[in-house]
């Protein structure tokens, strides 16, 4: 495969998968607000949060493009460490969920909880609903921050990579909006835990690859080594799931917390 195409795929695919997970979580809350308090304010809140996220990506992403060549090695180290911290966190949580140690993320349950909280807040103002606006703004901004972080980290390889990561995140947003508009209910059909596992494994692999490159390490098959690292991460995860099944057998697992 062409090296340039591979670089773009490395940025776009994880950005897309990770963003779908985050946009689905944000969608659940916006849907809860819209269905309980009307749609006008939450839609404005969503638009304002998207604008804030665009500014964040612009502010932190633009220097990456401008100064990429001058500080390439430092970027590799910083981005490698950030991706590792982020990827290991997602990987760990996904493995714990696969093993039944912590509960699977339940969008339907979260939706019901949000609806109850919003109803308890009282009647919405017909013209402008501050609660609806800020609830949606906060939800989209907080979930979107994870998207922005992934886009910036994956785009740190330069202009084309940043564009590919932004494209992946935008495509994920459009898919979520399309699905949400069609179904008009929480998107429980999206296999969030599996997707989080995929993203965790990918980000950890990229973190190892780029972090080592920052130490002037040359991988034996260049970017193709990523596939070997990814396979190793998946194998370790499978071993971890088997190990946890032995440590905490069925019936002795803790599934009380919904994280």
């Amino acid at each position: 495969m062409n090296a340039a195409v591979l670089t773009l795929l490395i940025a776009a695919v994880p950005a897309f998968v990770a963003s779908v997970v985050e946009w689905v979580e944000a969608f659940t809350i916006v849907l809860a607000v819209g269905n309980t308090r009307g749609w006008r304010s939450p839609l404005w809140g969503t638009a304002a949060a998207m604008g804030t996220l665009a500014v964040i990506v612009g502010v932190f992403g633009t220097p990456l493009i401008i100064y990429h060549e001058q500080v390439s090695q430092s970027f590799h180290i910083v981005v490698g460490v950030l991706l590792l911290l982020f990827g290991m966190r997602w990987l760990r949580k996904a493995i714990l969920r696969f093993s039944g140690i912590i509960a699977i993320h339940d969008e339907e349950l979260i939706y019901q909880r949000e609806v109850a909280e919003l109803r308890a807040a009282g009647q919405a103002n017909r013209r402008w609903d501050n609660i609806g606006f800020w609830f949606s703004y906060k939800a989209v901004l907080l979930e979107g921050l994870e998207v922005a972080f992934i886009v910036i980290a994956l785009g740190a390889q330069g202009g084309p990579a940043l564009q590919a990561a932004v494209l992946g995140a935008t495509a994920a947003l459009l898919v979520t909006i399309l699905l949400g508009t069609m179904l008009h209910r929480p998107l429980t059909i999206v296999p969030e835990n599996f997707m989080k596992f995929v993203v965790g494994a990918m980000l950890t692999s990229f973190g190892i690859f780029w972090g080592a490159e920052g130490m002037e390490v040359h991988w034996p098959f260049d970017a193709s080594s990523l596939l070997v690292i990814l396979a190793g991460v998946c194998l370790t995860s499978w071993i971890a799931v088997r190990m946890l099944a032995l440590i905490a057998p069925q019936g002795a697992r803790v599934a009380a917390r919904n994280i």
């Binding site: 760990r92 493995i95 714990l96 093993s99 140690i101 071993i239 190990m243 946890l244 440590i247 905490a248």
Partner: peptide
């Protein structure tokens, strides 16, 4: 590190 951490968490 991942295996050790998960082992401890599981236990």
């Amino acid at each position: 590190l991942l295996l050790v951490n998960l082992f401890n968490t599981g236990r």
